[in-house]
């Protein structure tokens, strides 16, 4: 099986079969990761460029290590130290990278749709590593991988996503992906942070966190950004924690074997209490490891599917 598109722009655009295929490939990659010699030749002769217009620690490092573990040439460009500062457009930057022989461009951008624009203008595969409020497909893939690893399947599972859904690309990708794989997704957060009409995607919107968590198999907290408070979307982090924060007591509403996820970075004591973060039900650290495996799988599948980017037309 090959992925249909040269790019991974979002989980909205790919089929459940493709998602399952990426996740099963990631299983193999995780095996490689856990071995003594974390080096394979899957990406030998390929170049992977990470083009980040936003700060990132884990996603960027995760892609970089995934590339290097598989023998690719990897390079980073960050907006603060590139021609972007000189006013170069995204398309021009992309074409420049493309012409140097990149096979995959991994892009993170503060504006929704930027990876789509890039993908239309380059021969390289484009992986969306987070665009504005739109999607963050590799994060959702690693979340789903983590759930399936623990639960065996997503089908019929009750997943609660709690927090700033409106601004969350992680939430959107997870909603697309998890509903495709048959999970029952419920969301909850302050009314000012729930995207209008989102229930049309087949998710349930709960006005209290208690209802959302009740009998859940998976509870996912999302990062609350302080600048949202300044824009008046919620009053204080204290009030947020009181009504939507996840602590031991609330977690008891979920199923006994429920797991807790968070895409990080976490505001301890706001989205999740420290006890929950460091507790037995938390798979937050496992998510990070799985992130590398999922990205290895994806890089492999995308570079395998077609001819590489030959620079000479």
């Amino acid at each position: 099986m090959n992925l249909k598109s040269k790019d991974l722009l979002g989980l909205r655009d790919i089929s459940s079969e493709e998602i399952e295929y990426i996740l099963s490939t990631a299983k193999t990659m995780k095996f490689i990761l856990s071995s003594n010699n974390k080096k394979t030749a899957h990406l030998q002769g390929k170049s992977i460029i990470t083009l980040f217009y936003e700060n990132s620690t884990r996603t960027r490092l995760s892609f970089e290590l995934a590339s290097k573990y598989m023998g690719a040439s990897a390079a980073n460009i960050s907006a603060s130290s590139s021609s972007v500062q000189k006013g170069e457009t995204l398309i021009d930057t992309g074409k420049t990278i493309d012409r140097m022989g990149s096979d995959v461009i991994v892009i993170r951008h503060p504006m929704s749709g930027a990876p789509h624009l890039l993908a239309q203008n380059v021969k390289s595969s484009v992986i969306n590593a987070g665009d504005g409020m739109n999607e963050h497909p590799t994060q959702a893939l690693l979340d789903m991988f983590t759930i399936i690893e623990k639960k065996g399947t997503l089908k019929g599972l009750k997943v609660a996503i709690v927090g700033d859904i409106l601004h969350s690309r992680v939430a959107r990708s997870n909603i697309w992906g998890m509903t495709k794989l048959g999970a029952e997704v419920g969301i909850s957060g302050p009314a000012t942070l729930i995207p209008p009409g989102i229930e049309r995607l087949g998710v349930k919107v709960f006005s209290t966190v208690q209802e959302a968590i009740l009998d859940a198999d998976v509870v996912m907290g999302l990062r609350i950004q302080l600048e949202r408070q300044k824009k008046g979307l919620f009053p204080t982090t204290r009030e947020y924690a009181r009504f939507f924060g996840l602590d031991d007591k609330r977690l008891k509403l979920a199923k006994e074997d429920a797991i807790v996820l968070h895409p990080g970075p976490i505001n301890r004591g706001v989205e999740l209490s420290s006890a929950v973060i460091d507790g037995e039900q938390s798979l937050i650290n496992e998510q990070v490891t799985n992130g590398v495996a999922v990205r290895m799988a994806l890089l492999y599948l995308l570079t395998r599917r077609g001819s590489s980017n030959e620079i000479i037309d």
Partner: peptide, 13 residues
């Protein structure tokens, strides 16, 4: 427009 499509495109409404 703020609504379903702005929600699913992640564009500010």
């Amino acid at each position: 427009n703020e609504g379903f499509y702005s929600s699913i495109l992640g564009l500010k409404g």
